[in-house]
Design a protein around this nucleic acid. Structure first.
Length: 587
DNA sequence: GCCGTTTTCGGCCCGACTGTTTTCAGTCG
């Protein structure tokens, strides 16, 4: 784990421990915020650490946290953290991760019954020892038991590429219910995060009761978690097991609700702070004039909102441009000098080239012909055929002789297609020591080379950096394919020094890939943002093996947008002539 | 603990649902 990640966990633990000991909520939030900032920071905090000014220059990190970070870099621990751990055992912090159990309940369980970890909690619920605790009735205990049971089965977040089609199916199903006027998804799914916690759906309807009834009685509903007048939550049956929240909101405040429930939480906090500075208050019903003397929510007092119907109208009154959902992470979207690139973010329709795809020659299901036709049917001007190289034995990688014959076959097929340029390429393994899997003579015969790591994905970070740098510096390589080799929820992949890779990509005019396959999404959003900030080029490729893989392109585009990729930085969105000039420059 | 076009003090986002209790605290998003 990187220093940033270790410190993020440490600040999170400080926050949780403070929360349990009953510290001021603002102090808790400040520590939690430092954890979040560190988690998304793309520079290694250790390189800043001796200089306190550099640390406090980061938004959210003040004097106190800077001192703790420096203390950690110098000694490997933080005294305040150690001190808190003597009062609040780690197991107790784990308990607060159980849905429905917060810091107050954890403290109560600890102090009245000595519950100090999840295992003890389970045992004591089973033995009935937890009856008769004040303010913790039978129903609450039952809910905790249910949550524990669920946690045992599903510890993972749902991958974007699994949640999105599911959400679309549910929305399609619910939109058929009489009375439904508007329905859309919100939350991290709408923001295009690589994994999501639950699916949020918003609807405006003239018949809420009918919609909720249909919702909680849908096929595959395993459990109804919450069922109120404006909100219901269900859990779907395994294997998906994902939670789905449905909220019904007035049609006139659909935009306000969409904004509110799309989040992120940090983005919303900043919006509300901006609202307050303008004498306004923002909630899920709209943007209202603030009345400090009346605590009743403004929408319940019959006050007319300044804006509510659309997200854009709310941003406008707050003096902001429309911020695309993918950018709503409080990671620079409020900076004025970034607003130009916000308008120019790459869109799905901009993508006109596929530069990484496989055929039957290695492990794909396409014939050469079939792949070309599929790309053409999607309106692409270019497709690169990049089968695996010889070391990828598991993927039927091509020997040098087979590759030579494959190149001939590709050129022959290409000659039969007008209107699309077909490139003979390869996805060449980057061997453990950084050498490529074909010799230079053969690589030079290819139009395009995607170099990717496939084996030894648990390599030490320093070695991995060296390995990938060698590929980026190789004059015949165009694109670094799925740079870390991660498989979301399954394999962490390599942890190279991403900044060195980005630097090399810029220096040698190479592109870094966002592999659009929902299992990969590699590079990930925060690395993409660092690459874009440094001026690197990005390729969004589907790595298609089958027809359906082409449909995963949208996940790659969402990830690109989350990393602030504009169309002019994305190879696949370039006009044909510009792309081919760049590709040929490496031959 | 952090922050500042109401700056070095005094604020710090908002509402729904649940369970336990009988007016509200805790949790969640």
């Amino acid at each position: 784990m990187s220093t940033n990640a270790v410190l993020a966990t440490l600040f999170d633990e400080i926050a949780t421990a403070l929360e349990i000991t009953g510290a001021m909520v603002f102090k808790v939030n400040a520590n939690r915020n430092v954890a979040r900032v560190l988690e998304h920071l793309t520079v290694d905090v250790a390189t800043l650490a001796p200089d306190k000014k550099k640390l406090t220059a980061i938004d959210g990190i003040g004097d106190g946290s800077a001192k703790k970070i420096i203390e950690f870099i110098q000694t490997g621990k933080v005294a305040e953290h150690e001190e808190l751990l003597t009062k609040v055992p780690r197991g107790l912090m784990d308990i607060t991760r159980i849905p429905g159990v917060g810091p107050k309940t954890a403290k109560l369980l600890f102090e009245t019954c000595g519950v100090c970890d999840v295992a003890t909690l389970k045992a004591k619920i089973a033995s009935g020892e937890l009856k008769d605790i004040p303010r913790l009735g039978e129903k609450s205990l039952q809910n905790i038991a249910k949550s524990l049971e669920f946690m045992d089965k599903a510890t993972e977040r749902t991958r974007l590429g699994e949640a999105m089609p599911l959400a679309e199916t549910i929305i399609e199903f619910l939109s058929q219910v009489p009375g439904v006027e508007q329905i859309d998804c919100a939350g991290s799914l709408r923001r295009g995060q690589d994994t999501i916690g639950d699916i949020d759906i918003l609807a405006a309807t003239t018949d809420p009761a009918a919609l909720f009834k249909t919702f909680i009685e849908m096929p595959l509903v395993q459990q109804v978690l919450v069922s109120g007048e404006s909100k219901a939550s269900i859990r779907l049956a395994p294997p998906r097991g994902v939670q789905v929240d449905l909220r019904v909101i007035p049609k006139d405040s659909f935009g306000a609700a969409l904004l509110y429930f799309t989040g992120s939480k940090q983005h919303n906090v900043t919006l509300r702070e901006r609202a307050l500075k303008k004498g306004l208050t923002l909630n899920e019903y709209g943007l209202f004039p603030e009345d400090k003397n009346d605590k009743t929510p403004p929408h319940q007092r019959g006050i007319k909102p300044k804006a509510a119907k659309t997200e854009a109208s709310i941003y406008k009154v707050l003096g902001l441009p429309f911020i695309p959902p993918e950018l709503r992470e409080n990671r620079g979207e409020f900076d004025k000098d970034r607003s130009a690139s916000m308008d120019a973010l790459v869109k799905l329709d901009d993508i006109k080239a596929e530069l990484h795809a496989h055929t039957k020659a290695s492990d794909g299901s396409f014939t050469i012909e079939g792949l070309i036709e599929e790309a053409q049917s999607r309106g692409f001007h270019t497709v690169a055929i990049t089968d695996h190289s010889k070391s990828s034995v598991q993927a039927n990688g091509l020997s040098s002789d087979r590759l030579l014959r494959h190149i001939d076959d590709i050129r022959e097929a290409a000659s039969r297609h007008n209107g699309i340029t077909v490139l003979a390429g390869a996805e060449v393994d980057i061997l453990t020591d950084g050498r490529l899997d074909y010799d230079d003579d053969l690589l030079a015969k290819l139009d395009i080379v995607v170099a990717s790591p496939h084996a030894s994905l648990k390599q030490e970070p320093a070695l991995a950096t060296k390995r990938l740098l060698a590929a980026l510096r190789h004059p015949l390589v165009h694109i670094l394919g799925h740079p870390t080799g991660r498989i979301i929820n399954r394999r962490e992949g390599l942890s190279p020094d991403i900044h060195q890779l980005i630097e090399a990509a810029v220096e040698h005019d190479k592109a870094l890939e966002i592999n659009a396959n929902h299992l990969r999404l590699d590079l990930r959003d925060s690395h993409v943002q660092a690459a874009v900030d440094a001026g690197a080029l990005i390729a969004i490729d589907t790595d298609a093996h089958t027809v359906d893989d082409f449909d995963e392109l949208r996940y790659g585009v969402l990830t690109a947008r989350r990393g602030w990729v504009t169309a002019n930085r994305c190879l696949n969105a370039w006009p044909k002539a510009k792309l081919h000039k760049w590709i040929k420059a490496k031959r």
